[in-house]
Design a protein around this nucleic acid. Structure first.
Lengths: 343, 343
DNA sequence: CTGAAAGCGCTTACAG
DNA sequence: CTGAAAGCGCTTACAG
């Protein structure tokens, strides 16, 4: 009853290279070369061995290969919180991209703590991962350990860069994103603006805030308040509280993420203020939430697939070609206009 | 400049067991036993070897150990979509739990496709994972391959069960959850009810709908409409469209997840209908969204940590103790009352 | 209690 | 072009 049905037969228990070699009547060395498509094996040998391997359902044991080659075809990835939708989308995209290149993803969540991040990096080393993709938990505190790991194992930073460059980086172009947003708000006659974004723990927090300040100035918009904390819905609600406590609502509020924007709008609504009626709000990221929340969000849509593709391609080229100057790849987001800035 | 700083020294490149043995002046066999705390090693040997190992920064090579022991201390997990917040929370909780038991998480996303799920299961086998945690993409179609994999590798189903039991299962008690919700609505004088939930692809889709139908009947509430699709915000919006097209709004709408509820409420609002003014809405899952969305959601809060803890404990006991009857562990959710049902 | 040796499954010089 | 052998780093019978 619990016996595997016909289909289960295809999934046999551990057919080994020596089984294939025996069945094909060759040495395991030849079998290995034929399977790997190495030079110096006759064409007929290749055909024969592969047929036998297929018949037996042979699959190379990645553990043995890893021990022998010192390479596991495993890539470790560390995210601060998998629960943030943007990170989840990024992980998803990176996982796809990795599979396409023949790698598997070992995922770890640092919960935003540098110590945990370091512990996980250590485990990745132990596991002989071929490369590491990291969204650093802190642009400064993450530096030292990332640097030393990066000296040994190909590593790429994604979405967030450490303060001092220590590896390749791929992320969104915050400058471009905020320019699209600020110029859009300027066209909407916005004169005063509040900011609700991430703190200095991440490069995005730093860059988005700096861009907003500068671009607002360039466009004769004054930044009347700034609240900076995490990238969560709750932080958005807290930003709304701070704003409400201050007594005046600016013409618009620029949020550092869609999550923040949503928390902000929801809390404002609780207090009787409607968006976009009473103030305009913009987000950052783009995704399902931005499309279905009401009001739909005006936001800078992150090029998630492109970020994932470039991050993996950087990593793979580091793995294969090794050294070289650190690359820094900034990908432009696109402005998506929603109801949150449309009166 | 790119040279690792002092700290990097602690992370040396591959100190091997034979390095430790040499330094301690013993055989690698003894070194291995001392480190593993096996019996038949003198206490002083244990102390000496461990000191040397610590001094040298030795860390066992999990790849070599895996090859030798046929066990990788790796657990594979397959989720349908990491982008659904509830799954993200579950993955997070399970990862923590796994680490606590000394396992690492190999994560794969099936994107809801059985073929992809099967492919990933195959890769897990190849990697010699010690166990598998799966949220099946389809209660029926996922069955055959899961069954044959489960015959070889300890496996536990989590959150969603396949139609025929083929492994241990841990998930929320849908019956209890819907009872809490329906009785709450009954107390709110609800007489007619619409349902917007998941389709029959998941056990939750089946069970939640069945529970609602039966419990509504028991409480003199008539189910006037049912829309069943995915567990996404977009599906919630589509459900709202269907409801609006039908021309009448029931007293309340029971959603199969918070995502659905949020999409539903947002779309209703676009059309001028307010919750809870025009109809009550309930969700299912509980999490940040339920708390910060406006109106806050009345929802059945999933015992995520308990589910994760039990799933891992089931898996670990299967790994260590092996065979035994399939267990089915249903954990009760709690009712959280929000503004979406409070007039 | 300790050590020499075998072996997990693979790949790759090294001979032939 | 093919095979015998070494070796990746570990653990565990098997002797002593």
């Amino acid at each position: 009853m619990a016996r595997p049905c016909g289909r289960g037969a295809a999934i046999a228990t551990s057919v080994t290279l020596s089984d294939v070699a025996a069945e094909a009547g060759v040495s395991i060395a030849t079998a290995s070369r034929a399977l790997a498509g190495k030079p110096r094996v006759s064409q007929e040998m290749i055909v024969r061995v592969r047929e036998v391997a297929a018949k037996l359902g042979y699959r190379v044991n990645p553990v043995a290969r890893a021990l022998r080659e010192g390479s596991s075809r495993l890539i470790g990835m560390i995210v601060p919180v998998i629960g943030i939708p943007f990170f989840a989308r990024l992980v998803d995209a990176i996982e796809d991209e990795l599979n396409r290149s023949g790698y598997e993803l070992l995922l770890a969540d640092s919960h935003g703590f540098v110590e945990e991040e370091n512990r996980r990096l250590q485990v990745f080393r132990d596991r002989r991962v071929d490369g590491i993709i990291v969204i650093p938990s802190d642009r400064k505190a993450s530096g030292p350990v990332l640097r030393s790991v990066s000296a040994e194992i190909p590593l790429v930073e994604v979405d967030r860069a450490t303060a001092k460059p220590l590896a390749d980086f791929v992320g969104v172009d915050n400058e471009v994103g905020m320019r699209l947003i600020i110029e859009h708000l300027r066209d909407r006659q916005v004169k005063t603006l509040g900011y609700a974004g991430g703190d200095d723990a991440s490069s995005n927090g730093v860059e988005r805030f700096a861009s907003v300040q500068r671009l607002a100035g360039d466009n004769d918009i004054s930044v009347t308040s700034a609240f900076r904390s995490e990238y969560s819905i709750a932080a958005g609600a807290a930003a709304a509280d701070a704003l409400l406590a201050s007594g005046v609502l600016p013409d618009a509020i620029v949020a550092g993420s869609d999550q923040i924007a949503v928390g902000l709008i929801a809390r404002l609504r609780e207090h009787g203020f409607e968006v976009p009626r009473d103030t305009l709000v913009t987000g950052f990221d783009g995704g399902e939430l931005a499309d279905v929340f009401w009001p739909t969000l005006t936001t800078a849509v992150q090029p998630v697939s492109a970020i994932a593709a470039d991050a993996v391609s950087f990593l793979v080229s580091r793995i294969n070609e090794g050294e070289g100057a650190f690359r820094r790849n900034l990908l432009a987001p696109e402005l998506q206009i929603g109801a949150s800035t449309t009166r």
